[in-house]
Amino acid sequence: MAPEKLVRRFWESIRHIKTFIYRFYVWLVLVFFYAPIFVLMVFSFNNSKSRTVWLGFTFDWYLQLFKDETIMHSVYVTLVVAVLAALLSTVLGTAAAIGIAGMGKRQRALIMNVTYIPVLSPEIITGVSIMLLFVWSGLKLGMLTLLLAHISFDVPFVILSVSPKLRQLDPHLFEAALDLGAKPMSAMRKVILPQIWPGVITGMLMAFTLSVDDFVISYFTSGPTSQTLSITIYAMTRKRVSPEINALSTLLFIVVLTLLVIVNLRQSRDNKQPQRKEEDVR
């Protein structure tokens, strides 16, 4: 009896040590992820211009941030472009997803491959190639070019988020609506759209977040009067050393955290729907 008990104890303690090492490792990586962000946040309340010496608590940098016209203008540009790009790419992408769903295998494969190009290619290539389009066509870089570029890299994500919802639909649903006398447009609006709505909204939120977050593509396609927040941040990190940037990071972090929680809650709710098929994990 006794030796068996000892052996079991031994294996149990081994398991405990293993769990401890596992958890410790996870925390180590998380510290690596969050330590820099934490440092930025702490120094946004520092009563000094120094990035490394703590001289007391202040809210001054937050106040200055809101008075800084360059930053406020770029926040405005970022939001206008992100909202417009999200809306337009959602309309374009949802329509595209519906159209693609009605296509044959070959056509669909061709279009999906083109759709994957902006998703899979390096951002700098997307940015540079769209910039070349504007240079070549003589379009002046500014708000319009920025918006066009943003829509272009947002649309694929909308399509990829709407398409799985369409694949879950009964293919005869649309025909049934037509047989019952609905016109194609109203069948689309009243039968198809409500069913794919969660995917549409998730796609739109994703497009919005991607637009707000983007730096590389905006950097190549915006003009001097249409600087997004990312571009202003870039200019700040290169020239001025001011804790305003820390204050900005802290605020952005909170905004992103809120958005991410909303998107995640939506996604986990969507995923709980029972009719989900195996192939739709995408």
Binding site: L40, T209, D213, F215, L229, I233, Y234, I245, L252, V256
Partner: peptide
């Protein structure tokens, strides 16, 4: 999802 310029700047 945090601006990558800021993350890099932090380092």
């Amino acid at each position: 999802w945090m601006n990558f310029l800021l993350r890099t700047y932090a380092w």
